[in-house]
């Protein structure tokens, strides 16, 4: 077998490669690149000073902070659930597993407006728990807790969905070894499991974070839109746009795009370190890698 023929079969011919590159990048250019450029063009339509001025508005500032606060508040819940669900699903066999996975997927398919509505049906003053909450003077909807609940619902599947395939592919041998060597459950988790999944976990965190910050529909229904108090950045974008403040609206949207890019940079670093780590591992254990 000639080397020429081998390259032919492990690599696409040059014209195919360039063709695929053109199609793939062209698709991304038209569907992602242009919209992103258009957002910044609108935001900067009257120059950088006007753009920065729009971002200095106190209501925009408080919306940015509230968006970040909600994203942070959602994190621990999502991490805890993601790890627990992935641990149970990936490492053990039990009846009804695919039903459980489907239930975890379900929030993806629920229209965001409906996702907000269901919390109103529960906690609104005409809702199932409305009177009880009113008697106890507890505010859930039209306040920050309701917005956190709606965001939790929307971002529910991300971390679990990220971790399940990862933990499945890793198997359970390392954990079993740790246990048989006398480690306690927590020691096993902190020393073996967590180091194995930490980068995948972070990847899931970043994805759910992007979604948490960008969510509009569900949060809009439960927010009450009180300015400076329950207004997140995506909600503020809508209000500014409706007020004929296109610069302000697109400036706020560009902040969200930038926040996404920041998390994406974090993700790139994560992936890079993950790769470096696996490369190191492979270099250390050359014999064990079987093809």
């Amino acid at each position: 077998m000639s080397t020429h023929k081998l390259t032919r079969a492990t690599q696409e011919p040059a014209w195919v490669r360039y063709g695929l590159l053109t199609i793939g990048l062209g698709f991304l250019f038209f569907f992602l690149g242009l919209p992103l450029v258009a957002v910044f063009v609108e935001a900067l339509a009257q120059g950088l000073p006007v753009y920065l001025e729009a971002l200095k508005e106190p209501e925009t500032r408080s919306a940015i902070w509230l968006t970040i606060v909600i994203a942070l508040a959602v994190l621990p819940f999502n991490i805890l659930f993601g790890v627990a669900a992935a641990w149970a699903i990936a490492k053990f066999d039990f009846r009804g597993k695919s039903l459980l996975i489907t239930l975890i997927d379900l929030p993806f398919a629920v229209s965001p407006v409906v996702a907000g509505l269901i919390f109103i049906l529960l906690f609104g003053s005409q809702g199932y728990f409305g009177e009880w909450l009113a008697a106890k003077e507890i505010k859930i909807i039209f306040a920050v807790p309701g917005m956190i609940l709606a965001t939790l619902f929307i971002t529910f599947p991300f971390i679990a969905r990220e971790l399940i395939p990862l933990m499945q592919s890793q198997g359970k041998d390392e954990e079993e070894a740790a246990i048989s060597l006398g480690a306690s459950g927590w020691q096993m988790f902190w020393r073996v499991t967590l180091p194995n999944i930490k980068w995948g976990l972070l990847y899931g965190v970043i994805l759910s974070n992007a979604r948490a910050m960008g969510e509009f529909g569900a949060v809009s229904v439960v927010s009450g839109h009180i300015r400076g108090e329950t207004n997140t950045l995506p909600l503020h974008v809508e209000i500014l746009y409706n007020e004929y403040n296109a610069i302000g609206a697109f400036a706020a949207a560009s902040v969200l795009a930038l926040l996404a890019l920041v998390t994406l940079v974090a993700k790139t670093i994560v992936e890079w370190r993950m790769k470096a780590e696996t490369d190191m591992l492979n270099a250390e254990l050359p014999g064990e890698k079987t093809a």
Binding site: F123, G124, S125, G130, I141, F142, G224, H225, R227
Partner: peptide, 20 residues
């Protein structure tokens, strides 16, 4: 004085559902 702005019907539904 605090303001809340949104679509008219959406706003009154929120008030009916407990927006104070």
């Amino acid at each position: 004085l605090k303001q809340s702005h949104g679509g008219s019907t959406k706003q009154v539904r929120a008030v009916a559902d407990g927006l104070e």
